[in-house]
């Protein structure tokens, strides 16, 4: 398998996962807004913050409101972190990797792209946006299922899996970041009162409510949810599970000798996180740290397998 192809498939998976995650993030935020009573301080600013996109956002808009934030995060083709830009990048990567994937994979992503492109304007209303996001989520899920069922679980597949799980771990950490941000910033008891609803929505955003209940078997509370989403190794969107999947795929790839050490380091770092003793602020520090470590892992994967500029 060409180094170039490995890189493209890895990015294809990352961009598609990102597309899905932005859709989840915006959905959960909308749901939260609907559940929280009027007057509770909660705005759209946090969505911008957890993506670290303040500067870019304020370069384009003056006011942080639902309309501007959703436009920016969902359909702005010029903001590289938007849903539409991610989907376009995914399409470009798959367009240039067609030789490695089943026909249906390209056709599916292309269809998704065309459908999204013609429906960009529908996100301005909440109703239209719900439908739009739903289509995205379904499309991304279908793609994952399609590859799992149609494609050999070979090296190309492993790079897709690594990309997907790295991006997923990153986004789970950002969604947890969102929760702790909401909690740490709120001074009113009123929000505290609705903490359960907040955590429930976080679980829903990651499709984890049912699995959480089966695994934890107690009422929903912050520490248990954090525990579940950070350390659980069975639930596909928990960081512990993502890191395990990455580790598994890496072990099966050729020339992986330099990587397991780093992975083991990351795994033990994750498992050593002790939620019971941290404040919201410390938690944010841990999540930041985790995001940096995931970034480092990406760098090592790229150095190890991807095309370095040929020496001339």
């Amino acid at each position: 398998m060409l180094s170039r192809s490995a890189e493209r498939l890895y990015w294809l998976a990352r961009y598609l996962e990102r597309t899905e995650n932005i859709a989840r993030l915006v959905s959960v935020h909308m749901n939260l807004l609907m559940d929280l009573p009027k007057g509770v301080e909660m705005g759209w600013q946090q969505l911008i913050s957890i993506n670290g996109a303040e500067q870019e956002f304020f370069g384009k808009y003056n006011v942080v409101n639902e309309r501007n934030v959703t436009r920016f995060l969902l359909v702005d083709a010029n903001y590289a972190g938007s849903l539409f830009a991610s989907l376009s990048a995914a399409r470009e990567n798959i367009r240039t990797s067609r030789d490695l994937l089943p026909d249906e994979a390209w056709e599916h992503v292309n269809e998704m792209y065309l459908h999204t492109k013609t429906n960009l304007d529908t996100v301005s209303s909440r109703h239209g946006r719900s439908l739009f996001l739903n289509e995205i989520l379904k499309g991304c899920q279908r793609f994952t299922g399609l590859l799992s069922g149609y494609m050999s679980h070979n090296n190309p597949y492993r790079f897709i899996r690594i990309g997907r799980n790295l991006e997923r771990a990153d986004m789970t950490s950002r969604i947890l970041d969102l929760a702790s941000l909401l909690l740490s910033e709120s001074r009113s008891d009123e929000v505290r009162q609705y903490e359960t609803i907040l955590w429930m929505n976080i679980l829903k955003a990651l499709n984890g409510l049912l699995m959480y209940r089966q695994s934890v078997r107690s009422r929903i509370n912050g520490d248990d949810v954090l525990d579940f989403l950070l350390l659980n190794t069975d639930f596909p969107r928990s960081i512990g599970c993502c890191v395990e999947e990455i580790s598994h795929s890496i072990q099966l790839l050729p020339n992986h000798e330099s990587l397991p050490e780093k992975i083991v380091g990351l795994q033990s770092y994750v498992q050593a996180i002790d939620i019971q003793q941290v404040t919201q602020l410390q938690l944010r520090g841990i999540l930041d740290d985790l995001q940096n470590k995931l970034g480092d892992l990406h760098g090592q994967i790229a150095d190890n397998w991807f095309l370095s500029t040929p020496e001339i």
């Binding site: 398998m1 060409l2 180094s3 170039r4 090296n155 790839l253 050729p254 020339n255 095309l307 040929p310």
Partner: peptide, 11 residues
């Protein structure tokens, strides 16, 4: 050795 090679994940 005047042979053509491609850069892959295996070398």
């Amino acid at each position: 050795d005047d042979c053509v090679y491609m850069r892959t994940i295996e070398g």
